[in-house]
């Protein structure tokens, strides 16, 4: 797993767009990817990466895109093109065979994942999680939902540090993280149990604090500075939602 957040601060129009508009656009791209032919999938992926460059997040997006999509693309082309038995397998060299229909299918699946990955990376690299949460609150989503998205993001650094501290402390006390798999499994228990126990204590304390603050006194939360929204963006969201519904109906009925 990549170990740092993808979001890159910036002032581009995509950065400034309401997160709900961007997420609706992302879902539309995901649904559309199941209808486009392979060449279009790869072309639209390239266009999205170029949009990332124009928004000033291209370096981060392209780097992660290559890192995440390259192993998958290679695997899907090798597997469908040369390994999975198909009726049109043709010999290339010695034991090596290839299938044209397999390569076409690999291009379709690889292109679809490429498009979903490129658009997802563009979304997360231009959308601060905190802004997304404010947008959800402004849209009057239930506070519990916002809490479940926001709280883990805020706790992540704290628990990463806690896990490191537990690991260091246990190793200082003589815990060995090397040796046979059985020894390492035993070490796992010595590392995880303190983390889980402290997490449960943490959960209890947080619930007391939340209750004391009247966290769920209202069915929704108000936001002091909601992300900017415009009539055009609201119109765009509804249009995209209708378009997605039509695409879905088409896929189901065809």
């Amino acid at each position: 797993m990549l170990n740092s957040s993808i979001y890159c601060p910036g002032e581009s129009s995509l950065h400034r767009a309401n997160p709900l508009t961007k997420s609706t656009g992302l879902f539309t791209v995901v649904v559309t990817s199941f209808l486009l032919p392979p060449p279009a999938l790869w072309v639209v992926s390239a266009i999205i990466l170029l949009i990332g460059l124009a928004c000033g997040v291209g370096g981060s997006v392209i780097w992660r895109y290559v890192l995440l999509s390259l192993p998958f693309t290679l695997a899907v082309f090798v597997f469908h093109g040369a390994i999975l038995p198909r009726s049109d397998m043709q010999p290339v060299l010695g034991w090596l065979h290839y299938s044209l229909t397999g390569l076409e299918h690999a291009s379709l699946v690889g292109g679809r994942i490429s498009l979903i990955l490129a658009s997802s990376l563009l979304f997360v690299s231009t959308t601060a999680p905190a802004t997304l949460l404010r947008a959800l609150d402004a849209a009057r989503w239930p506070p519990g939902l916002s809490f479940l998205l926001a709280s883990p993001l805020l706790l992540l650094d704290q628990f990463t540090g806690r896990a490191r501290a537990i690991s260091d402390a246990q190793q200082t006390r003589g815990l060995s993280v090397d040796g046979s798999p059985w020894r390492r499994l035993q070490a796992l228990r010595m590392l995880l149990v303190p983390l889980l126990t402290s997490a449960l204590a943490d959960a209890q304390e947080r619930s007391h604090v939340l209750t004391a603050r009247g966290f769920r006194a209202l069915p929704y939360r108000t936001v002091i500075d909601p992300p900017a929204d415009t009539r055009f963006q609201r119109f765009l969201r509804w249009s995209l939602a209708v378009f997605m519904a039509m695409e879905t109906a088409f896929m189901v009925l065809r």
Binding site: L192, L195, A199, A203
Partner: peptide, 22 residues
């Protein structure tokens, strides 16, 4: 709700121990 929030974090950082123990 508070338990779910910390459990999500445990799911994410659990891999840290896995990296250490291979």
């Amino acid at each position: 709700l508070a338990l779910i929030a910390v459990a999500i974090v445990i799911n994410i950082v659990g891999g840290q121990f896995n990296d250490l123990l291979r």
